[in-house]
């Protein structure tokens, strides 16, 4: 399937391994990515906090660019983009006058957003469009014995109405389902639906990293081998900042944190290095050991 692809900022900034691993995994799932390279940042809630109309216009522009492609839908790989864009889209879709008003900002560029775009995080697309059965069939190296803790973060599960989490689409279970479909073991721990703390890292570093540190510690107590996140901003606090978080909470951590496309890629047969895991701050040793033992076992 063809999708209009919005990689976001951080996957092209401090987590380049996310952008890279998505590019490697997409062809293995027959996803053709049409990258929206002229679109601007979603605002991550910060631009909306400054000026709602500006955030809504920037995202309406991104949606309009997506609608110009022949992609079936728009796909993102960042929960924060999903949440910030869904918030803008909710306003744009709810009110014709408002939509026309925002579109008038885009008229110079000849762009206009039409109500009803489907914008999905890679996680949602995996479950709802590709399907878990299809995913299972493509698994080359099931994640047998790999104990994976899902870390959903906030922007992709709340608020439930805006993000369409309901009985028909239990999107707050999708990470669990995907880990299982890939053959891994789901580890439940206290932090599954909590906040990584990243949004206040420059405002209240201690409170921010106390959150990250606690969740990582809880995952260690639950004997997880690694965590998986659908959001690169969570990755920044949980991986990049993990050594500092460790000091804040006063305990050894050393918990590897994988981006969702990396976890999928592992099961589809790619090596940790191909998936950019060498770029992580916390060496995903347990994952690499697992991967090596599987390859050795197969030989």
């Amino acid at each position: 399937m063809k999708v209009a692809y919005w990689p976001g900022c951080v996957s092209r900034g401090f987590t380049p391994e996310l952008h890279g691993s998505m590019a490697k995994v997409a062809p293995l799932l027959d996803i053709e990515l049409i990258e929206l390279d002229r679109a601007a940042c979603c605002g991550a809630g910060v631009i909306a906090e400054h000026n709602q109309e500006l955030a809504d216009t920037l995202n309406a522009r991104t949606f309009a660019l997506a609608q110009r492609t022949d992609g079936e839908l728009m796909m993102n790989i960042c929960s924060t983009c999903q949440g910030a864009q869904s918030e803008c889209q909710e306003r744009l879709d709810a009110n014709t006058d408002y939509r026309e008003y925002v579109n008038s900002n885009l008229s110079d560029e000849g762009l206009s957003y039409e109500k009803g775009l489907s914008n999905k995080n890679f996680l949602w697309l995996l479950v709802e469009n590709i399907g878990l059965d299809e995913l299972k069939q493509r698994v080359k190296r099931p994640l047998t014995d790999l104990r994976v803790g899902p870390f959903y973060g906030c922007y992709i599960v709340r608020p439930v109405d805006r993000l369409g989490v309901d009985e028909e689409h239990p999107r707050d279970r999708y990470l669990h389902w995907v880990i299982e479909a890939l053959g891994g073991t789901v580890i439940d721990y206290a932090g599954v639906y909590k906040c990584c703390g990243f949004p206040i890292i420059t405002m209240n570093k201690e409170a921010s990293l106390k959150q990250a540190g606690r969740h990582l510690g809880d995952a260690i107590d639950a004997e997880a081998d690694c965590l998986v996140v659908p959001c690169p901003l969570c990755h920044l606090n949980l991986d990049l900042q993990q050594p500092v978080a460790s000091k804040v909470v006063g305990r050894e951590l050393g918990m590897p944190v994988l981006h969702l496309p990396q976890l999928v890629g592992l099961a589809l047969g790619l090596s940790p290095k191909e998936l950019g895991m060498n770029k992580h701050i916390v060496r995903p040793t347990s994952v690499i050991d697992w991967s090596t033992s599987v390859v050795a076992g197969a030989a």
Binding site: G45, C154, Y155, R158, V160, C195, P199, I200, M203, N204
Partner: peptide, 16 residues
């Protein structure tokens, strides 16, 4: 206040 308006971490829990 260091624990005032800039201490909110955007978790959306209060909305739900």
């Amino acid at each position: 206040d260091p624990h005032g308006i800039y201490d909110c971490t955007h978790c959306f829990n209060c909305i739900d």
